[in-house]
Deep mutational scan, measured.
Amino acid sequence: KRLCLVCGDIASGYHYGVASCEACKAFFKRTIQGNIEYSCPATNECEITKRRRKSCQACRFMKCLKVGMLKEGVRLD
């Protein structure tokens, strides 16, 4: 089984260019469509796991980008 490159949960397929789970796919889409900017309360190096993926949105979004999710893949309509 493929794992989500962002949080390590089971991937539902390839989304925005990267093997990812439904939760991270939806999080990435919401962030881009809403043009949301997050800031990390710590040092921008929070560990993102299935259990902790909700704890820091800034680091989760940075990890989405780091593993290769493409903003261009999100439709803005």
Rank of each mutant, 00 (worst) to 15 (best):
G73Y: 03
E45K: 09
G13A: 02
V74P: 11
L3P: 05
D77W: 06
E45I: 06
V6Q: 01
E45M: 08
V74Q: 12
R52L: 14
A26R: 13
Y16P: 05
R52P: 06
H15P: 06
S12P: 08
H15G: 10
N35L: 06
K66L: 04
I32D: 02
A19T: 10
E37R: 05
R75P: 13
A11N: 08
A42Y: 05
G8Y: 09
M62W: 09
T31Y: 06
A11K: 05
S12W: 07
Y16M: 07
C7M: 01
R2F: 14
V74C: 04
I36M: 10
M62Q: 13
Y16I: 05
C7S: 02
N35I: 03
F61Q: 07
F28C: 01
M69W: 07
T43K: 15
E47R: 06
C56R: 01
G13L: 02
F61N: 03
F28Y: 01
F27L: 08
N35D: 14
R53H: 13
S12G: 11
C40H: 11
C59Q: 00
R30I: 01
G17K: 04
C7H: 00
I32F: 09
C46Q: 01
Y16C: 07
T43G: 12
C46G: 02
L70W: 11
R30P: 00
V6S: 02
L65F: 04
T31G: 04
C56D: 00
I36A: 11
T43Y: 07
K71C: 12
I32H: 01
E37H: 08
K66G: 07
Y14C: 13
C24K: 00
K66D: 10
I32R: 05
R52V: 12
Q57K: 09
G34K: 15
C46V: 03
A11P: 03
Q33N: 05
L3F: 15
L65Y: 04
C64S: 05
E47F: 05
T43E: 13
A11D: 07
C46R: 02
C21L: 03
F61D: 00
R30L: 04
K63H: 05
M69D: 02
Q33C: 09
Q57I: 03
L5W: 06
L65G: 03
E22R: 04
A23N: 02
K1H: 03
R30D: 07
L3V: 11
I32V: 13
M62A: 12
K1W: 05
G34M: 11
K25S: 15
G13M: 03
C4S: 01
P41W: 07
R53S: 09
D77G: 08
C64P: 02
K1P: 01
R53G: 13
V6D: 00
E47M: 03
L76A: 14
C4F: 00
N44G: 14
E22F: 04
K66P: 00
G68S: 00
M69F: 13
E37I: 06
K25F: 15
A42N: 13
R52M: 10
I10T: 12
L5S: 07
I10D: 15
G34F: 14
C4A: 01
C24E: 03
E45T: 07
D77I: 03
G13Q: 07
G73F: 05
C56L: 01
V67K: 09
R60M: 14
Y16H: 05
C4H: 00
S12F: 10
I10A: 15
C59W: 02
Q57S: 09
A26Y: 03
R75V: 12
Q33G: 08
T49Q: 06
G73P: 12
N35V: 09
D9E: 14
N35E: 14
K50I: 14
L3G: 09
A11Q: 07
